Amino acid sequence: MQDIADLLGLSRTTVSWVLSGKGDERHISRETQDRVLKGAADLDYKPNLIAKTLRMGKTHTIGLIIPSIEDQFYSEVAKAVEFEAYKQGYTLTLGSSESEKDRESNLIQLFRDKLIDGLIIAPTKYSRKEITNLCRQDFPFVLFDRYFPELDTNYVITDDERAGYMLTRHLIEKGCRKIATININKHLEVTQRRMEGYRRALRESGIEQNPNLIADVEFATYRSDAAGAIERILVLEPDVDGFCFITHILAIEAINCFHEHGIDFNNRFKMGCVHEVPMMKIVAPKMSIARLPADEIGRQAVRLLLASLKKAGNADEQRTRKVVLPMELIYRD
């Protein structure tokens, strides 16, 4: 800025006001502003972002922490978050926790060390302590997909109980009486709600819950465990006639297992799944879907976070917001 000021014979303060967009506010003539902007372009001026951050106390950067970058749902949310943040003048820093406690904790601390303005997090089942600390420190953040009912936080979630209920009820209406399901990370609120929907549909239809038709797997080993769970169900209950998959990643592993065993699953079972990836329309065209609104989740999360940033420091405005979005139900059979 001093170089520009020397070139144009102006004060450094005047140059600073113009380059920070305060020329009109400071009653600097349009001619002078144009001279400063041209001088900056001629000298290829670039602002020192670190210095600006220290001066303004903001980086206009938000952090996004997701459980897995390879899960298409979270990739879709990340894309929507980045797009919405860009529209609002923010950039995105992304990290994948891989559902590991220490990795997630380190990412939160790393992002805060980089002076990001706020966080958007799909927390792991171990995150309660970290989220509690963020609440206590009044650090702006929004949870999505997963949350802790006992903590008063901003969050964007979906109506998961209804999704599990509607998919299971649809299978029952199609004649299924032995509907299997595989649960993942059963300690998470999101999967508990989907399972409760599954159980409610069975209860209302007078179908007794059969423990042989339910299997639990952990995220870290779900690929190998899901195949074993499917094989166990088929051995214990060979006349199983339906599958309600709590998440699309389990449906993919089940389809792989069916294929390896030569099972004509499209004609043998009625199936439903929460969310999908494009290949599922081809390999399982009859599978009904409760589609997660990934784009809207991303947009809403950014808007909640930016609203929280604007209210930071104002105790009267520190009201948390909780958004519950519906899923689109698609019955393909």
Score class of each variant (00 low, 15 high):
residue 291 R to M: 08
residue 243 F to G: 00
residue 22 K to P: 10
residue 143 L to N: 04
residue 27 H to R: 15
residue 38 K to P: 00
residue 255 I to Y: 13
residue 120 I to H: 08
residue 171 L to W: 02
residue 167 L to C: 13
residue 215 A to I: 01
residue 127 S to A: 15
residue 320 T to L: 00
residue 156 V to L: 05
residue 158 T to R: 03
residue 307 A to T: 11
residue 320 T to H: 00
residue 98 E to C: 06
residue 31 E to I: 09
residue 331 Y to L: 15
residue 226 A to P: 07
residue 185 N to K: 12
residue 329 L to H: 03
residue 36 V to S: 02
residue 233 I to W: 05
residue 88 Q to W: 00
residue 274 V to P: 04
residue 56 M to A: 13
residue 2 Q to A: 13
residue 54 L to E: 02
residue 313 G to N: 01
residue 7 L to V: 02
residue 57 G to Q: 11
residue 261 H to G: 00
residue 106 N to S: 14
residue 155 Y to P: 03
residue 17 W to N: 12
residue 39 G to W: 05
residue 264 D to H: 11
residue 6 D to W: 01
residue 61 T to P: 00
residue 25 E to M: 08
residue 238 P to M: 09
residue 146 R to M: 07
residue 49 L to R: 11
residue 90 Y to R: 08
residue 93 T to L: 15
residue 197 G to S: 11
residue 219 F to K: 06
residue 218 E to A: 15
residue 116 I to D: 04
residue 255 I to K: 06
residue 211 P to D: 14
residue 72 Q to D: 13
residue 67 P to K: 04
residue 39 G to H: 10
residue 310 K to S: 11
residue 187 H to D: 14
residue 44 D to I: 08
residue 28 I to V: 03
residue 105 S to T: 15
residue 152 D to S: 15
residue 38 K to S: 10
residue 125 K to R: 13
residue 26 R to D: 00
residue 75 S to V: 09
residue 251 A to N: 09
residue 67 P to W: 07
residue 103 R to H: 07
residue 70 E to P: 04
residue 157 I to R: 08
residue 329 L to Y: 14
residue 291 R to S: 13
residue 144 F to I: 02
residue 78 A to Y: 10
residue 34 D to R: 12
residue 10 L to P: 10
residue 198 Y to S: 06
residue 233 I to T: 06
residue 167 L to P: 10
residue 247 T to S: 15
residue 170 H to W: 08
residue 297 I to K: 01
residue 221 T to K: 08
residue 314 N to C: 07
residue 152 D to C: 09
residue 47 P to I: 03
residue 160 D to K: 02
residue 160 D to I: 07
residue 111 F to P: 04
